[in-house]
Design a binder for these strands. Structure first.
Lengths: 167, 167
DNA sequence: AATTGACTTGACACTGTGTCAATTGACACG
DNA sequence: CGTGTCAATTGACACAGTGTCAAGTCAATT
């Protein structure tokens, strides 16, 4: 909080006039950044896709584009999760929203008959969601040095191979 | 530290007689638990496998068995990572060791000629490692409610489909 | 009987979050 | 012109958690 006050040029106490707690500030920052990034517009290509596999591909492309921009603020919220209930709830909420996108993509495969018989819709949703999780993205890009492009390309490939049949 | 002292029935200060800092205690606990679990013996089936795909399967089975036992202590170290350099280094070290196992499995596929042409050995190692990461395991088992058995079965399936060819 | 080692109590420094009271300066309204 | 309001200020404080220090206890060793 002191650092933020310093960076914005106001006193530490003044920060508390705007946000009642550290976690509230973090949550507000996350929501604000989410708005700035205009998720709905970015999701349009995936939502417009008529074929299941295309919907899946477009969704992963969305995510691969979105996460590097969203990550810095998301990271702070993710860390706060462990010491703060409100932050944990806010994070879970974001992740739930992301999972809905996964579910929609998997449902589109199912509607097409291209969902692999190995997977029920809920299980495939779980697996896709875990694959695309922020920590997994961190591991591949930050730790392993994958570019955003490579991340997207390879995740699409894994997802196709795992969840689709006969494409 | 106060909680640990209480749980062990000694004074808080006495804990510092044994471990100079919180992170040192965490690291020692992690190493101790690792020893108790006898990683080498558990890895034997994977190391003994002669066929690449079998080595991969046995490695994922090892991991699926191992991680639920190791997780409680690993989690504490993982969290300490963000505030403590020594803990971060210790965690990275554990993860490096785990990645070596991934590398060995991928190398075994390559030696067999069953590594998918989509993947170079390093990239496949990265991807397998990220797939099997602790946060991904947390997401699937703790958040999604997958059983250990299901986790293992499905991760084997994903890994096979993603990384092997013509099995 | 003296020494050693593990442990104790109690106090303290430091960091970070969050709260409170009193004050200042700018601006708008009647 | 004075008044009230609002945002912000300074400075102090409570509280939790980590880590340190000094002095003392107590049992086993020698």
């Amino acid at each position: 909080m002191a650092d933020i006050a310093k960076a914005t040029g106001i006193s530490r106490q003044a920060v508390y006039l705007h946000f009642t707690s550290r976690s509230e500030l973090l949550i507000a920052a996350t929501l604000y950044k989410g708005d700035l990034l205009d998720v709905d517009a970015r999701l349009a290509p995936s939502r417009a896709a008529t074929v299941g596999v295309e919907r899946l591909d477009r969704y992963i492309e969305f995510w691969g584009d979105y996460i590097p921009e969203f990550y810095p603020v998301a990271k702070a919220l993710m860390l706060a999760q462990d010491t703060d209930n409100a932050a944990a709830e806010a994070w879970r909420d974001r992740m739930r929203a992301m999972k809905e996108g996964c579910r929609a993509a998997i449902d589109a495969l199912h509607a097409d008959g291209t969902l692999s018989p190995d997977w029920s819709r809920p299980k495939a949703t779980d697996a896709l969601w875990a694959m695309l999780s922020v920590p997994a993205w961190e591991a591949l890009t930050l730790d392993c040095g994958w570019s955003a492009k490579e991340y997207t390309r390879r995740m699409k490939s894994i997802a196709r191979q795992s969840f689709t049949v006969g494409v």
